[in-house]
Amino acid sequence: MQWMSPKEYEKMNQKASPPTPVWKTVPMAFLFGGIICTIGQLCSMLYQNLGADLETASASTSITLIFLAALLTGLNVFDKIAKIGGAGCLVPITGFSNAVVSPALEFKAEGLVLGLGAKMFVIAGPVIVYGITASVIYGILCRLFGW
């Protein structure tokens, strides 16, 4: 198509495409993210009341949230909540859990090893790769310069 340049077309596209309704998505993200973190806070305080120290309580809280998100993913509910909550469900550790569980569930059809096992980290894998890499670089800096 020689009578239309990609640049000009992109302008037309911008005009024709409806914008994301940020006035809805952003408050929802705040609300859902806030609620998930509040549940986390309540868990953490409960575990501390039961005698755990802060660090143990914090780790147990993460594990609890990971479990809940995994279960809701299995029950076909998490994606429906996240449809409304958006980043409010994605950014907390629940989003990481969902990113691990959903491909495992989806690709079970291709077998327990090459499906479930191999595909489990197709989405969440990069989080581990870049998280660990960043931490190792930081560790080297710590060791060399006593950061």
Partner: peptide, 9 residues
């Protein structure tokens, strides 16, 4: 795209 149960908007 993504797995069916993946939480994407």
């Amino acid at each position: 795209r993504y797995p069916l149960e993946y939480a994407s908007q």
